[in-house]
Design a protein around this nucleic acid. Structure first.
Lengths: 248, 248
DNA sequence: CGCCAACTTGATGGCTGTCAAGTCAGGTGG
DNA sequence: CCACCTGACTTGACAGCCATCAAGTTGGCG
């Protein structure tokens, strides 16, 4: 599929394009499966857009929850902090993915969401989303699927943290990124990391030096070429094989 | 006629008692916050009850999803398996908690749910639950909260697996169990573990020997008294203090 | 009563954390 | 435009926590 050409700087056009019905992420994001008419109703909800600069917090742990956020462009991390300062990155999110689901539980956010590059999000007031999803069965069901998918993803991370060794974790991480870039029409084998080694390490339960060493090792073994944040995957099968190596 | 009527009454009585509206878990479980009338409608959904013996699977990864399950009594674990046989226990569930949320995502279960003691569950057909929650706002919202709570819980486990040391993990685990037993009216300080050391280890990302050693260490330090599966917590503050000790 | 799974405890080793030093890259100001 | 500065990254040496391997103990259950 060809990338969409932005042939006009017309403001109206840009507003139209900002609606779900014209968003090229609609197959990845919340509107998935909705009819034209239904999507039009969702458009009414997604009124508020917001730009964030790299380093900005979309929300912080402890602040009031009232909306979930769809990432229109950019890249985020979510993390939780312990009182003693330890950080656990709980996920990296890219365009089309939802942020803020953690806040539904208590009406307060339980983690921090930080933009790792300049980003743009659509805010979806949660009460209104619930109202609409009582009317639109498809929307309701899809939203439930999205929440469930998040739970399944978390189980995968637990598996990774609980049973895998350092190199397996990094291999799984790279393959997951690759797959998600592919789903967005980018190269599966050539991309830039938006996060630091320390953030990768926090996500994978490793120290940054260990992450760095694993990258170097993968390069020595010809699985990838890595220069700072630029990663090229040379041998997908090799990485997959790494993932299945049990602790000996 | 009389015996017949008695039998009928007994049956009715037992049926009534099995409904959400008369379940003593209703404050913990799905019916939370519903009015009498609304709970009556939920009762109609929760028609199917099922008993499981220790060791029985409630569902398996890969099988079709069509219902979520509320635990009426008993104790479960959920786990995911890697092709190479590695197991990750993703959670332990007790009465009033829901099982099967992972299946919504793909219509197939992604993990196994196993009874760790003789248990009883209520099956809630998911499509019917969605239908009802389009009509009952309170039910809809509470269900969303339950799913979100699961996501938040998973983040806690990630924190545990990603940043904590063995003794911190076990301390957090024991305190969490204690708190959940308390919520169910049991002693916070004296309980029986339903799972093996190996299962605890899998959940905590440790080997069973490490779990065993940590138990012994806690006992030496006077934090707990443990004899096989019987645990008594002697010093809650001591365990909490352990949780906040950074890797030195 | 005997069997076996579950558990405990000890000895040893290895993966990864810690500490340290140096390199690289991008951004800023002169 | 280049020098500088700083955060990010890499690499090495060493250490410690936990896994592994092994042997023995306990307790539940047929």
């Amino acid at each position: 599929m060809m990338p969409q050409q932005n042939t006009s700087q017309d403001l109206n056009l840009s507003l139209v394009k900002s609606a779900c019905s014209n968003c090229n992420l609609r197959e990845l994001c919340l509107p998935f499966g909705l009819s034209e008419a239904e999507m039009g109703r969702l458009d009414e909800l997604v009124s508020s857009r917001r730009r964030l600069k790299k380093g900005d917090n979309l929300y912080r742990a402890g602040t009031r929850f009232d909306a979930i956020f769809a990432i229109r462009s950019g890249f985020f991390k979510t993390d939780v902090l312990l009182e003693d300062g330890r950080e656990q990155v709980t996920g990296f999110q890219m365009s089309g993915e939802l942020l803020g689901l953690d806040g539904i539980s208590t009406e307060f956010h339980t983690c921090n969401a930080v933009a790792l590059e300049d980003s743009e999000i659509c805010a979806i007031p949660f009460t209104r989303l619930e109202n609409l999803s009582r009317e639109i069965k498809t929307l309701q069901h899809h939203f439930h699927k999205v929440m469930s998918r998040e739970i399944v993803r978390d189980h995968g991370v637990m598996m990774l943290l609980g049973t895998m060794r350092a190199e397996e974790r990094l291999a799984a991480f790279l393959l997951n990124l690759s797959q998600r870039f592919t789903a967005r029409g980018y190269s599966h084998a050539d991309f830039f990391l938006r996060m630091t080694r320390e953030e990768i390490g926090s996500y994978l339960g490793l120290k940054l030096e260990t992450v760095s060493r694993a990258f170097s090792r993968f390069q020595e073994d010809g699985h990838i070429a890595v220069q700072q944040k630029h990663v090229r995957i040379l041998n997908v099968a090799g990485l997959k094989a790494l993932m299945n190596n049990q602790r000996r």
